[in-house]
Amino acid sequence: SIKEIEKEEIIKVLKEVNFNKKLASEILGIPLRTLYKRLKEYGI
């Protein structure tokens, strides 16, 4: 599903940037606030 793909992509990017959420949100092209929402939604 799209949610699974998105979750995997978020985890992959977070690992690449050593869990720097600000940098991860910039790489993913989403606002930091949205990233936090996704992390909560996906239980990351």
Rank of each mutant, 00 (worst) to 15 (best):
25 S>K: 02
9 E>Y: 15
7 K>Y: 11
22 K>E: 07
7 K>N: 05
43 G>C: 09
5 I>E: 11
28 L>E: 00
23 L>I: 09
1 S>K: 05
29 G>I: 02
21 K>G: 07
23 L>G: 03
8 E>V: 10
37 K>C: 07
15 K>V: 11
19 F>N: 09
8 E>Y: 13
43 G>Q: 10
18 N>G: 12
42 Y>L: 15
19 F>L: 04
42 Y>D: 03
9 E>Q: 15
18 N>A: 10
39 L>G: 01
20 N>Y: 05
10 I>A: 03
19 F>D: 05
34 T>L: 14
13 V>G: 02
7 K>H: 06
14 L>T: 01
2 I>N: 15
11 I>F: 10
36 Y>L: 15
38 R>H: 11
15 K>N: 11
32 L>C: 05
37 K>P: 01
3 K>G: 12
32 L>Q: 03
27 I>M: 10
1 S>A: 13
9 E>L: 15
10 I>W: 03
43 G>R: 06
26 E>Q: 14
36 Y>T: 10
37 K>A: 14
30 I>W: 07
29 G>P: 01
5 I>D: 11
20 N>V: 05
18 N>Q: 09
26 E>S: 11
43 G>E: 08
5 I>R: 14
30 I>Y: 04
18 N>W: 07
24 A>W: 02
26 E>H: 11
44 I>D: 04
16 E>P: 01
27 I>F: 06
43 G>D: 09
33 R>Y: 11
5 I>N: 13
35 L>E: 00
16 E>F: 13
11 I>W: 09
6 E>V: 08
13 V>W: 03
1 S>T: 14
42 Y>M: 13
3 K>E: 11
8 E>A: 15
17 V>M: 06
20 N>M: 04
32 L>E: 03
5 I>H: 13
16 E>W: 10
15 K>I: 13
8 E>G: 10
35 L>F: 08
7 K>F: 11
7 K>C: 07
8 E>W: 14
30 I>P: 00
36 Y>R: 14
29 G>S: 05
24 A>L: 03
40 K>R: 14
35 L>D: 00
31 P>T: 15
25 S>C: 07
15 K>Q: 11
5 I>S: 13
28 L>H: 01
31 P>W: 04
1 S>N: 14
44 I>G: 04
21 K>E: 06
13 V>A: 08
11 I>C: 06
41 E>G: 05
31 P>M: 05
30 I>G: 00
28 L>K: 00
26 E>T: 11
31 P>I: 03
19 F>K: 03
5 I>L: 14
7 K>L: 12
30 I>F: 04
39 L>T: 02
22 K>D: 04
13 V>D: 00
38 R>S: 05
6 E>A: 11
25 S>P: 00
29 G>Q: 09
11 I>H: 04
1 S>P: 13
24 A>R: 00
18 N>F: 09
27 I>P: 00
15 K>E: 08
33 R>D: 14
13 V>P: 00
4 E>Y: 09
22 K>W: 10
26 E>N: 09
4 E>P: 09
9 E>C: 08
40 K>V: 12
35 L>C: 01
8 E>F: 13
36 Y>I: 15
2 I>R: 06
41 E>S: 06
29 G>Y: 02
4 E>T: 09
5 I>Q: 15
31 P>C: 06
42 Y>V: 05
17 V>D: 00
23 L>Q: 09
2 I>K: 08
38 R>Y: 15
44 I>T: 04
41 E>V: 05
21 K>Q: 07
27 I>H: 05
30 I>T: 02
37 K>H: 09
3 K>Y: 10
25 S>I: 03
16 E>R: 14
1 S>R: 04
16 E>Y: 12
39 L>P: 00
4 E>I: 10
23 L>R: 14
40 K>E: 13
32 L>F: 04
